[in-house]
Design a protein around this nucleic acid. Structure first.
Lengths: 363, 363
DNA sequence: CTGTTAGCGCTTTCAA
DNA sequence: TTGAAAGCGCTAACAG
């Protein structure tokens, strides 16, 4: 008696717990466990390899059986298990991208396009946030590697040399984006930040401004642009009368404050060159608040061409980088590498997407 | 001679190709294949299960062996394979979130926080872009299910009833965010859009504006807010003199154009109520361009409280929704569900994060 | 405390 | 054209 009760209750629990054992015997009420290849096979009265073939090599299966199998797939609601498939194939169909945070706007366009293009190619994009500090890079890399991604996309360079060589040893395709480096891990898609800075300095000088103030974010790449900017400015005889450095992540508000400080200094700049549109927008707000005539009395220039920038009044003069194209190129490199499955050395391609000065109303 | 050459070249190719076979024999030059549990075990002179235990149940291993194993792990650079582990454990440690696109700003804060919190709990976030159309939802869901995520987070409701029940059958934890629904798939974290709309209408009326123009995006949730807004407005005797509907994805520019049309109409509104800050910002730009005194001659109100909104001049009156908190709550629900591994029915919790009217300079 | 055994669900040889 | 067998790398019982 006791025993029977015990059995019954175990049976009940088993059903609720969705125990696979339940399916071992022939049951009237099939346990709603997620279907596997074997479930489909049983229904279609073929071996489970055949089902696998229908999915992966349909040409190797007779149309008659294939039809039966497809019907069974539909009926069972079978969805392949990529964990199992990936383990067997040593291929996860997963690309992992690393960004500082989702809130960092410039990379969004790249992610959007990258995700879309990869999806089209049968791959999925997993995005990791690294934060700005880059401190425990080792554990970040480990958590990435655990998933055995088929490729890794970096939007910000890895700080540690050790991690870089680790990735190279593992022979994982890596694309570093948003910059062009002398010593890339593997491939890279980006542009020359120093050249951008030079072009900005040039533009300001050519517009006739004789002094400039710099509102700049402190990250490494921005410093590259600043270097270029300063060199072009001094070359053209434009004097840098003040520089405000803003720590990342920068906000519009920082630009406004920096602008105020620069305008309140003894030597007022005729133009404000900003490391990024967000800051330029803040500067514009402050200038307008002070009723300063932009661009006549004060020129303002940014970088990045936010969607917003063209809609400001006056519209912001800036530098455009095709973020979406960076994503598209990255996807193209990756996908071509995946298909051409020669296990040769990695491609190691380098693509310069360039940039454009967008001359608008503020400078 | 020929033969030897051939052998050498094959050997070289093999090394380059990283052929697993190479490791079968005892080789002086270990092929740099990514290390497995077995490689570590061999080096530490224990069985591979012991290595697994050191990683997952360190308390079940003597400190002496554990030390040896950890040294071997370091030496081999072993990184666990989650595809294999996940397959064995039936648990991927993966949460998949669906968003329309990365470019959709409001959700960014949610993703950021969700990603961070999940990471802390040992899970990773994979983000899928669904687009706005929601057409081939079935294939989207299938590609999600293939990865066997431990949970799914939706930022936009699934259109198809079939997909909703499919998820329920699979017993996958699902959290729908950014709204509160009568018939949720499982859990939900959001707020009441109609209530938001009512609060907006109320605010405008209470500020003394007697007529209003609406600039509104056409998506479903925005329509809920509009409904609430209109009802509150009419209840308070404020007349809606014009409505501009903008299709998603909306841009600042759309707000500007809509504002212009409303201001050029015969019956000019005293206040502009916008479905979202982006549009309100556009409206503000147009108003300022026309030298209209905001908020005296024209009130402007938005929704969403973009980071930018507080920095505008005058700062934008809007409604704040704590996007980060939505992410945090979602993570909390998920993680608690993962830990409490009773295979009971799903939690099905509902969290209202509320909202706040942020009264600033534009209305 | 440690090793042995049996899968997780799938793909790829190799035979029939 | 189809099936049987082996194994991808790992974890969870179960023995010793």
């Amino acid at each position: 008696m006791m025993e029977i009760q015990a059995f019954e209750s175990i049976g009940l629990v088993k059903t609720l717990m969705n125990d696979p054992i339940e399916n071992a015997g022939v049951q009237a009420n099939p346990t709603p466990r997620t279907a596997t290849l074997r479930d489909v096979a049983q229904l279609a009265r073929v071996s489970f390899v055949t089902v696998s073939r229908v999915l992966n090599h349909p040409e190797k299966v007779s149309e008659r059986t294939a039809k039966r199998v497809r019907a069974a797939i539909k009926k069972t609601g079978y969805v392949p298990n990529l964990l199992a498939g990936g383990l067997a194939m040593q291929r996860s169909r997963l690309v992992i991208a690393v960004i500082p945070t989702f809130a960092h706007r410039p990379f969004i366009g790249t992610l959007t396009e990258l995700g879309l293009a990869l999806e089209k190619g049968g791959y999925q994009l997993l995005v990791c946030q690294s934060g700005y500090s880059g401190e425990n890079e080792a554990s970040l890399v480990e958590s990435i590697l655990m998933r055995r991604p088929d490729a890794i996309v970096l939007t910000t360079p890895l700080q540690s040399k050790g991690m870089r060589t680790l990735l190279q040893q593992r022979r994982i395709p890596v694309v570093e984006t948003w910059q062009l480096n002398d010593d890339p891990v593997d491939s890279q898609v980006g542009f020359d930040h120093v050249a951008v800075g030079k072009a900005m300095g040039h533009y300001i000088a050519q517009k006739g401004y004789r002094t400039a103030g710099l509102i700049w974010s402190e990250d490494v790449r921005a410093q590259l642009r600043r270097k270029g900017c300063i060199s072009a400015l001094s070359e053209a005889g434009v004097k840098v009368v003040g520089t405000e450095i803003v720590s990342v992540p920068v906000r519009t508000h920082d630009g406004r404050l920096a602008c105020a400080r620069l305008l309140d200094a003894r030597k007022k700049p005729e133009a404000l060159v900003c490391s990024i549109d967000l800051l330029a927008h803040g500067a514009l707000i402050e200038a307008q608040h002070r009723q300063i005539d932009v661009p006549r009395k004060l020129g303002i220039m940014g970088f990045g061409d936010l969607e917003l920038s063209a809609d400001l009044e006056p519209p912001l003069t800036t530098v455009r980088v095709d973020a979406a194209r960076i994503g598209a190129c990255t996807a193209a490199i990756l996908l071509s590498g995946f298909n051409n499955n020669s296990t040769e050395e990695l491609a190691g391609r380098s693509v310069d997407v360039g940039f454009d000065i967008i001359s608008r109303g503020t400078a």
